[in-house]
Structures are given as C-alpha cells and as structure tokens.
Amino acid sequence: MAILEINELLKTYGTFSLGPMDLSIEPGCALGLVGANGAGKTTLFRSLMGTVRKDSGEVFVDGVDTNVTPAIWKQQVGYVGDYTPLFDSWDGHKNLNTFSRFYPDFSMEKAAQLAQRLNLDLTKRVKTYSTGQRTKFAIVLALSHSPKILFLDEPSNGLDPVAREIFMEILFEYMESGENSLIYATHHISEIENLADRIVFVSSGLIVRDEIKEDLAERWRKLTFRHELPLESIPHVLSHKSEHPFHELISDDAAQTMQHLQECGVGGVEASRLSVEQITVQILRSSAREISHV
C-alpha cells in the first residue's frame, strides 16, 4: 500500500493552476520534487497539509482518505515548510512540550538529541531565532514524532553548510529503516542527488516527468557528431544545437537516438554522460518551452 497517494489534485489561484496531479509514493521511497521557482512545489505541500484548500482531488496518507478522516492522519506526517509558525514568545522547550501533546509518539529525548546535533539552543525564545534556527526547529519538530513520511519544502534554506550536512545525515538515518518515505522539494538538484531514488519534475503546476534516478543517469547522454546533411525529427532529443557541419544533441534515451542516427547514416557519434544537474536543467527548459507553446 502506498504511503501517499494523490489523485487528480487541483488547486487554482488566479491564473496559476496546480494539477490535476496524480502521484503515488511507496514506503521506503525518497522522492525529489524538482521545479523552478513558482512551479507549484510549495502549493502542492500547502494543499497536502491543508494550509490552502484544494479545489478538488483525493489524498490518501497511509491508506487514510484525508477528505473524509479528521486531521489525525497528520500524526504520520512531518513537515518542514517555507515558514514555520511557532509560539514566538515561548522558548524552544515550551514550544516542543506544547506540540508533543498532539503526537502520541512524540519523544522529547529524540527532540533534544536532534536539537543538540543541529546545534540549536532550545532555551532561547523562538522570537530571537534566525531563519536558519527556525528551520532547524522545524526539522526537530518534524522528526520527533517518528512520522512515516516527511514533506520537506526547500528545507535547507537558511541552513549553514555544517547544519546542511548534519541535516542530510539525519535524513539518511531516517530512511535507513526502509519503511519511511520523504518528499524533498528543491530547485537545487545537487542537494538530493545522493538521497533521492526517484525524481519528479514539475513545471507550471504539472508533473512533466517522473523518473527513477538510476535510469536518468543511464539513459541520458550528450551526443556530438559531424554530419553534412540536415537532420530532422530525431527521437528522444530535447535539445539540438548545430553549427554546420557539427551537431550536439541532448537525448533522454541515447540508445534509441543512436539507433536512429545510425539508420540515417550518421557515424562517429560521441556520447558523454550528463550530471543529474545538467539533466534537470534540460528537462525544466524543454518543459517550459512545451508549456509556453501550448
């Protein structure tokens, strides 16, 4: 059974529309949600958590229909959003104590350990926390009740490099059991290159690609060759630059593209690997082009 299942989720704000979106996540899956600014990542999380009302669609968390069941399903979710509202006049300890009432599996001991690892002072008033410290607090809060799934919306914003490193270690430990899942939204793919095993690309509120990370690295290639005649309709090509007689292609299925080139009599094709970062840029660029054409 999927830990998270989204069916036909739709949210419209003026001219921006998220979805309709379908997404399913199995236990043990670390999913990277990648998109440019304004692609709809934050709106997706807000719709899932209920801070914005979705227009339509169904969301199941651990098999529980969130439209029907009271918000008790949120006990299975840890959330780090773009902003974490807290009781500003209280210190970190008092905030944690208050939140612990709402989660039966909340562990103050675990919270204290996480805070220590992230070098977060819980005796300080939350009001005095910097953006990074507030994010650290949100991380502590999100993980202390042992959730089955984490929703992380650009969680490393404001974190210093050391805290970011520790945070990634914590996430790897969280995923170690093989039963927990997470969605990590970012526009910096390098953050999740090692963590994610599946990457979903969003653009203009829609899922444009849903890929297994290993497949991405295997299939995608940059192909360079020399050919005198013009080439048209090459399959699986996202980008084609040519300066007669040299050609440079980006293919999302190098084997298929190379077979086609062979059939067209093209020889001496050189294939080179692309980093996940380069692949991301290509996908987001091409999807932005496609959407603007529509």
């Binding site: 509202p85 500003d88 709402f102």
Partner: peptide
C-alpha cells in the same frame, strides 16, 4: 504575527 491558525492547521486537528 505568530500565524496562530496556520500553526494549528499544521497540527493533527481539524479546522
């Protein structure tokens, strides 16, 4: 200022 109701929305309680 504290975005109190936004905070409550994130907790396992209904609107």
């Amino acid at each position: 200022d504290e975005k109190r109701y936004q905070l409550y929305t994130l907790l396992p309680v209904t609107a």
